[in-house]
Amino acid sequence: MKAIITVVGHDTVGIISRVSAVLAARGVNILDITQSVLGDIFAMVMYVDIGSCTIPFTDLVDENEALGREIGVVIHTMHEDIFNSMHRI
């Protein structure tokens, strides 16, 4: 199963590193990353494989959300199918 993780917020040092560390610790493989900084707003979209994730997906959603609060960004972790169904026919 694949998921999309989005990270949006004020740019600070180490955002990618902190998010990647959580994912690595849980066995989540990052397949693709796009990121941009517009002014001081940081926006990153990660495409990840959660097939080998060591915790239930709903727990990963909570962990990422908590990490986002800790580092001052908003992190959404969502099953890729919601985007596929909305934007692909």
Binding site: I4, T6, A43
Partner: peptide, 12 residues
Amino acid sequence: MLNTGDILETIQ
């Protein structure tokens, strides 16, 4: 991969 704009549109 999905288009970043589409992803951000859904979240918005």
